[in-house]
Design a protein around this nucleic acid. Sequence first.
DNA 1: GGGTACGGCTTACGACGTAAACCACTACAC
DNA 2: GTGTAGTGGTTTACGTCGTAAGCCGTACCC
Lengths: 250, 250
Amino acid sequence: MSDDSTTGDDYPDADRAVVEDEPAPSSRVPLSRERIVAAALEFIEANGLPGLTMRRLGEKLGVEAMALYRYVPSKEDLLDAVVESLVRDVRSDEVVLDAPQDGWQDFLQRLAHGVRRMALDHPKAFPLVASRPAEAPWLRPPLRSLEWVETFLSGLLEEGFSDEAAIEGYRAYTSFLLGHLLLEVAVHGADVGPLDVLDDQTGEAGVSAYPTVARLRDALSEDRSAIEFEEALEALLDRMTVVRNEHVEG
Amino acid sequence: MSDDSTTGDDYPDADRAVVEDEPAPSSRVPLSRERIVAAALEFIEANGLPGLTMRRLGEKLGVEAMALYRYVPSKEDLLDAVVESLVRDVRSDEVVLDAPQDGWQDFLQRLAHGVRRMALDHPKAFPLVASRPAEAPWLRPPLRSLEWVETFLSGLLEEGFSDEAAIEGYRAYTSFLLGHLLLEVAVHGADVGPLDVLDDQTGEAGVSAYPTVARLRDALSEDRSAIEFEEALEALLDRMTVVRNEHVEG
DNA sequence: GGGTACGGCTTACGACGTAAACCACTACAC
DNA sequence: GTGTAGTGGTTTACGTCGTAAGCCGTACCC
């Protein structure tokens, strides 16, 4: 209820930007693909995904919309680039990958936390990441992350996983991250208020009609989410271990 | 790569419909909210979510676009209604609910299969369901499904779950369904082809560069998906049982 | 007859993504 | 100097979108 796409002027800022931190006014920070992608991500976090428009993004960069098309072939491609930049951030997170690796469980745990951090840092953009090429973004072109999947899968294979177990593990792991983080991001990102306004017809008292649900809201603290994530992740890794060993013996 | 939104005429049918199964041509099957919602769902399955347009939907129903607005206040609301109809279908599935209930695990198992059937029956629409009010659709208004969550949660409470365990179970269960089915639907719904066309620049051989990934594709059969779903669901329910008992004792 | 309500059509507006043409302006050739 | 060829941006325009506002035919009640 905060962005209609018809009114078109109900989002916070989207003006200014342009120079802002450049002492010399001669070179107005020349446009570039990276700058555009970064601005797009910023804009999404600030105004929501549906608020992002080529014209508005241009405005934020102090430039006409069509100027962006010199660096980005289309909006679709721009969104791909945004997703790619987020994924790359996770991948280059030293905590995730550069630290000494201690087996596949340790690796998957680090990775999961990296993705979760990314999701929480960019709650408005994460649904985009999660539904980009219709599948997990770290799986399909045109994102270059195929090597990513390759690393993931061959890593499991080297750790003694059979083909089936590796694939099952990959899918279970991916869908776990997808589901858990989508939900977590939705809960924290969006406004949690409208739980008590569900009576536009009946006139019933909304909240008191669902006491159990009302209680649920109080339990949606970020701390508990982290704990649940931890526990579920651990359970998943345990299950993967079991599957791995089953396939090794059988 | 099948719908650009700029060309606008690259989707399969979207003409005809109008009467088609009515012998008397006098009354042209008067429009109604249900008919519109059903047509919208049909259209989405046939032409994809981005292909759905008020004008095209009107065309499919043999009517101008603005005629729809007599029964549907907005497109947003129409999409909500589509989601709601899908959810209602699951809820009224006799296999899911009307069969004799055998404890909460049995119930959750039936429910999961019902949702999965819905997802597989409407692969193009399910992402809509999964991301409607930003959260799980069976959780937030304006969908009337709050009572649904209520049923769910209080059911768990009656089965001996503590508050925390019930909430954790609800969230784990929901995120599991969300993640697993989104992935499954994406894998089967979209074209699986473009795995081998990832070289628009380098000219490298796409497939042979990622042998592990190539193998993965062969393992994405619907049968294996079903088995994985089954196993993961069972593991989840087991974990919920453990959590329940922990909270009972501690 | 005259309402008057319903159901659908027509027109119109402001937004959108983006193709195409059109300027600067800089850089280098001669 | 005078081309000439980029480079980086603007302007204009087209087709599409969702939808507000008004019109108009038909059916029913008085």
